[in-house]
Design a protein around this nucleic acid. Structure first.
Length: 283
DNA sequence: AATCAGTCCAACCGCCCAGAC
DNA sequence: GGTCTGGGCGGTTGGACTGAT
């Protein structure tokens, strides 16, 4: 369809907002609420497009926004949620009260992504970067045995296939069922311990196609998630940007430490999600 | 003091989706 | 069912800022 840019009209101002503009926007919203964003600029006496006003409001002027440095707790939350949700900043933001998706996205891109990279962790997959090399070349060295990787891959493939099947089933069911307003059905509640499979399968279909690649291994039961995702680092602590990644590549431990660390990591994520606002649009 | 490189972040862009018509 | 519109989202950019040389 190719919709036209919202600010196509000449004469609309772009670029940084002045304090006067902020004041006008704040005053207007304070009095009338925002309602229709497109109509707002005219009513508020602003030479801006509605979209620009909305962005300014949601990312900067809203009174319930917390600004400033991210706490360690917040950083860990972002990292864990990113492992689970990918670049779905608005979803991540729902778990971090008072932080905007834009702020989280910026913080991820400028700080956390680099930190993970320095630690030898792929910020996209949250797996140690040398995993591929290890699996390709390892034949009894210090990494995960090839057979284990192969087993994981095969396991993941099986789950992926099961996931697709479940997705198809869900689609069929949702077409048969009238839409249920009550979100507490499955989408409305976070992952609950008694709901392993169905919940996981319901997260995934909402992912955009571009995110599928790094979410495959999430569409499993807790146990299987832990197993298949076991290449991911257990804990990501602040502190020394790059101290050594031996730990990051816990694969070198092989065996139970390796497994346990990652189990902890994924359990943390699940706990985090469980304890997050249940009205999150994500679940 | 001047210059340069790197970092940070507010704002824009373009796409997508849901709802209205 | 098709089209249009508003709002939301994620990716990207441009300029301000900061630290190193």
């Amino acid at each position: 369809m190719g919709r036209s840019p919202c600010c196509e009209k000449l004469g609309l101002k772009k670029g940084p907002w002045t304090p006067e503009e902020d004041q006008k926007l704040l005053a207007y919203i304070d009095e009338h609420g925002h309602g229709n964003w497109r109509a707002l600029p005219t009513k508020a006496g602003l030479q801006r497009c509605g979209k620009s006003c909305r962005l300014r409001w949601t990312n900067y002027l809203r009174p319930d926004i917390k600004r400033g440095k991210f706490s360690l707790q917040e950083e860990q939350t972002i990292i864990q949620l990113h492992a689970l949700l990918g670049n779905r900043w608005s979803a991540i933001a729902t778990h971090l009260p008072k932080r905007t998706d834009n702020e989280i996205k910026n913080y991820w891109n400028t700080h956390l992504k680099k930190r993970l990279t320095k630690m030898g962790i792929d910020p996209v997959t949250h797996k140690p970067k040398n995993d591929a090399l290890v699996s390709a070349s390892d034949s009894g060295g210090s990494g995960v045995p090839q057979s284990k990787n192969a087993a994981n891959l095969s396991h993941m493939a099986q789950w992926e296939s099961a996931r697709l099947e479940a997705e198809a089933r869900l689609v069929r069911q949702s077409k048969l069922r009238p839409s249920n307003n009550n979100n507490n059905s499955s989408f409305g509640s976070p992952l609950s311990p008694e709901n392993h499979i169905s919940d996981h399968h319901q997260i995934v279909p909402s992912m955009s196609p571009t995110h599928h690649s790094h979410h495959h291994y999430l569409s499993m039961t807790n146990t299987d998630t832990i197993t298949a995702a076991a290449t991911t680092n257990a804990t990501i602590q602040e502190g020394g940007d790059d101290n050594s990644n031996g730990k990051a590549g816990s694969s070198s431990n092989g065996g139970s430490d390796y497994f346990e660390d990652n189990k902890t990591y994924w359990n943390n994520i699940l706990n985090l999600v469980n304890s997050s606002p249940s009205h999150s649009p994500m679940f």
